[in-house]
């Protein structure tokens, strides 16, 4: 249970990272909090020649507020969000989800950028951030580009990073005062990887209604206009008009063949929508 003997670098800025990860002649791995990479290194599933520690980079540990978004550096931790050291503009969605990630000792080091880039389908950030319509900003030799969170994830453990590129920040839109959200994950044991995730956002002022089936075996299934799932949206009881049959078809179309899996995901989303209604 000891990692291979890798080299180590801790650059002071992003410009110092890019030449290191552009080196094709050896296996280079970026490490932020290391809470997913650490176990994989200890088990020697990952055997890099060089580990580039990006936690010394001030820019990645900063939070910037713009008129319509909160922009977090990639090395902001789950605990930073849970404890609201990062101002919450999501009506409690991000702090609530952060508090349910793994365990406190992991949240004190695990980062939002690391989690998204690791692209584990069962991880929380991918699902809730897809529901909130967040984007990530990547920087590489060709400059910067921004990608929606759900597009950044290509599949299990694969993020859309071009050679020499890294994630620098995550931008989460500010929600309106009337926005409501719901998040439900199905775990048999606290802190374990979720078997199914449902995430939902309705923000009438901004004309947004999004639903996400997360913890699939690949990318999250994002329903960009969730009104189709809610009937006409006239029901007085939240979640009552939820179209389970259509939800089931949407997850099936997303590639989920097992009926029990499909049912678990449909129920997770229904509970998330109910939670949004009762909030």
């Amino acid at each position: 249970m000891k990692p291979v003997n890798f080299d180590y670098a801790r650059p002071k800025d992003v410009a110092g990272v890019l030449p290191l990860i552009a080196d094709d002649s050896r296996t280079v791995k970026i490490m932020a909090g290391g809470q997913s990479l650490g176990p994989m290194l200890n088990m020697r599933l990952v055997q890099p020649d060089l580990v580039v520690d990006i936690t010394g980079i001030e820019e990645l540990r900063q939070v910037v507020e713009t008129p319509d978004a909160i922009v977090m550096g990639g090395c902001i931790t789950h605990a930073d969000i849970e404890d609201r050291r990062v101002p919450d503009m999501t009506r409690g969605a991000l702090p609530a989800v952060a508090g349910g990630i793994a365990y406190r000792a992991v949240r004190n080091r695990g980062t939002i950028g690391g989690s998204i880039t690791h692209a584990d389908p069962s991880a929380d950030w991918i699902s809730i951030l897809s529901a909130l319509g967040a984007t990530v900003t990547l920087r590489g030799p060709g400059g910067s580009r921004s990608v929606a969170v759900e597009d950044y994830m290509l599949g299990a453990l694969e993020a859309d990073l071009r050679p020499g590129e890294m994630l620098v920040s995550v931008s989460v839109p500010k929600l309106s005062v009337s926005a409501r959200w719901g998040y439900y994950k199905s775990c048999r044991k606290t802190g374990e990887f979720a078997h199914a995730i449902g995430a939902f956002l309705v923000d009438p002022e901004r004309g947004v209604s999004r639903a996400v089936f997360g913890a699939t075996e690949s990318r999250p299934i994002v329903i960009a206009d969730a009104r189709q799932l809610l009937g006409e949206g006239t029901a007085t009881e939240p979640g009552r008009d939820f179209d389970s049959r259509l939800a089931g078809e949407l997850v099936e179309a997303g590639g989920m063949s097992d009926p029990i899996d499909r049912q678990t995901h449909v129920v997770a989303l229904r509970r998330a929508i109910q939670q949004a209604g009762s909030a």
Binding site: T55, C75, D80, N108, T111
Partner: peptide, 11 residues
């Protein structure tokens, strides 16, 4: 802000 233990060191 940032991972516990980080941010104390120089490059």
């Amino acid at each position: 802000l940032g991972p516990a233990g980080s941010g104390n060191a120089s490059t």
